[in-house]
């Protein structure tokens, strides 16, 4: 009634058995599986290693003051994770290699070992919780501090499928806006109410500057206020190591300091509709003097 151990019996035709016969053999299978697991594990790590040497296949260049600490934590975590992955796969390959069936010999009867169990759990818990706690430093710096008072204020407005950036102008105050005033069709410079619905009657809004480019000075803290008109979007600048949802109905603050001049891409990272993948804008980090000049050139003519 019972079939023979191991189920190595094949019931397909002789010719095809010959082709796949080696796969069915226990000794061979154990060796092959061990090699297969090791190969996959080492291949995975090799893939990561090679990617680091290729341009565009690893983290983009970092240009914000918090990115050093963040990338450090990232490196630490990826190393620990890589080691854990490798050890587990090596161990799995090893037991598969070593403990294959041998004739009628029986396995070692054991229902477990509480001591080993507790030690393993404790070591894991220390490593994991340690990582969780050290990982909070950058987060606290980013999100639990207020932006300094002298920070450059920019309001980020997201909508399907573009970004508008608003600067408060010389008076340092944003003019009031209303959804009832939105005029999507007129994106001309200095348009009132324009796509953001800036109330022309509010004197604070007279000198507001609206742009489709985010231009910021290098080395100065920037305080963004994220808003969304229609659906949830996400302000994502890979080079800044920043990502934050812009949620309808919420004003979300985000502050950072960029320290390298240049032109970087802004993407939307939260699914927002059919052309989500096209919702791109540019971040231009300029020298402070160039930034001031740009802002003055853009200011609405009174």
């Amino acid at each position: 009634m019972l079939t023979k151990r191991g189920q190595t019996g094949s019931d397909i035709s002789f010719a095809s058995s010959l082709l796949i016969l080696p796969l069915a053999c226990g000794w061979f299978m154990g060796r092959l599986l061990a090699f297969g697991i090791w190969l996959v594990a080492l291949g995975t790590l090799a893939f990561f290693a090679v990617s680091q040497t290729r341009s565009g296949w690893w983290f983009p260049e970092a240009i914000s003051t918090h990115s050093g600490a963040l990338d450090g934590q990232m490196k630490l975590t990826l190393t620990i994770v890589g080691i854990a992955f490798l050890l587990a796969q090596l161990a799995l390959g090893y037991v598969v290699w070593r403990f294959r069936a041998r004739g009628a010999e029986r396995a070692h009867y054991s229902e477990g070992n509480t001591k080993v169990e507790i030690i393993c759990a404790a070591v894991t818990a220390v490593v994991f919780i340690g990582l969780a706690i050290t990982g909070q430093r950058v987060w606290i710096g980013l999100h639990l501090n207020q932006a300094p008072a002298e920070a450059v204020q920019v309001e980020v407005n997201a909508q399907q499928f573009l970004w508008y950036f608003r600067y408060p102008g010389a008076d340092g105050r944003f003019g009031s806006t209303s959804p009832k005033l939105y005029n999507e069709a007129d994106t001309s410079s200095g348009a009132r109410p324009g796509p953001l619905g800036i109330d022309a009657k509010d004197p604070a809004g007279k000198d507001d500057v609206v742009s489709q480019l985010l231009v910021i000075p290098a080395g100065r803290p920037i305080n963004l206020t994220l808003r969304a008109k229609d659906v949830t979007h996400d302000f994502y600048v890979p080079a800044l190591r920043l990502k934050q949802d812009a949620v309808p109905g919420l004003k979300i603050n985000l502050h950072f300091t960029a320290n390298k001049e240049g032109r970087y891409e802004i993407a939307c990272a939260e699914l927002c509709g059919q052309l989500h993948h096209q919702m791109r804008a540019y971040l231009e980090v300029k020298a402070p003097a160039d930034y001031e000049k740009w802002l003055q050139d853009r200011a609405p003519k009174q």
Binding site: A88, F99, R100, H108, S110, E117, A121, T124, I129, A132
Partner: peptide
Amino acid sequence: SVLTLVIGVPSAIKTFNWLGTLWGARIRFT
């Protein structure tokens, strides 16, 4: 975040125990 990493501990225990099950085994590769 901390709770999330804590949940890794029972997951790791399961992995150890699977390896422990295979340790000293007589594996049939079906």
